[in-house]
Amino acid sequence: MDKILNEYLEKIGKHLMPMSTPERIDIVKEIKSVMLELQHNGVSSEQIIERLGDPKELAKAYLGEAISKNSTFSWHKFGAVFAFYSYAGVNGMFVLPIISILSITFMISGVIAPIGGIIKFVGYLMGYDIAGITFEIGAFTATRPMQYLPFSIVSGVLMFLLGKVLWKLTMKYIHAISQKKIKL
């Protein structure tokens, strides 16, 4: 393999840094294999580079596909989403951060709300009024201590489910962007 193709592979590897090392190595090996096959068939290095396109775009497609394969949440994947949106362009710089941050916020709030309701309820049972914990939705304010626990659990479940839906929407958006992947 000549210097031009090796430099191209290095650029691909650099743009795939948010991925795990085994995934990155597999992708670089796959692209190298295609390059070697094309070279064997008499295609010049310049033609191979032209056929594969911009290394950043090709890496973006692989990164998007890897992120959207499995829609389960992980902090590693959350970081990869942010790395991906920088490759996704101006639209991705607004849409992806907003929906991914909202998804995390709603999931965390969905866990915190019932905890607050439990604390308020236990405080009530023990004879304490914990003034810092309130439950308000618009003009409605829970005034009776017995309202806190059910409202906090229901709102927590709804927020957590909304967060999951937004996370799946994030994954679908990434998958849609990564459809530009060049079929090797």
Rank of each mutant, 00 (worst) to 15 (best):
V28Q: 02
I31A: 02
L38N: 01
Q39P: 08
H40L: 13
G42A: 15
S44H: 02
S44L: 07
E46F: 14
Q47E: 12
I48V: 05
R51E: 04
P55W: 02
K56D: 05
K56P: 00
E57D: 10
K60Y: 03
A61D: 05
L63E: 04
L63S: 04
G64T: 02
E65C: 10
A66S: 10
A66I: 06
I67W: 02
K69V: 13
N70V: 06
N70P: 01
T72D: 11
K77P: 00
K77W: 02
A83W: 00
Y87A: 12
A88C: 11
V90A: 12
N91S: 15
N91W: 12
N91T: 13
G92D: 06
M93L: 15
M93F: 09
I99V: 10
I99W: 00
I99D: 00
S100V: 01
S100Q: 05
S103D: 08
S103M: 09
I104M: 12
T105D: 06
F106N: 00
I108S: 09
I108F: 13
S109F: 12
I115D: 13
G116E: 06
G117D: 03
I118M: 15
K120D: 01
F121G: 03
V122A: 10
V122P: 00
G127K: 01
G127M: 03
G127C: 05
I130P: 02
G132P: 01
I133D: 05
T134N: 13
T134Y: 11
T134K: 09
F135L: 15
F135Q: 05
F135E: 04
I137P: 05
G138L: 06
A139D: 15
A139V: 15
F140T: 09
A142I: 01
P145W: 07
P145L: 09
F151H: 11
F151I: 14
V154R: 02
L158S: 06
L158N: 03
F160W: 09
L162M: 08
L166S: 13
W167N: 13
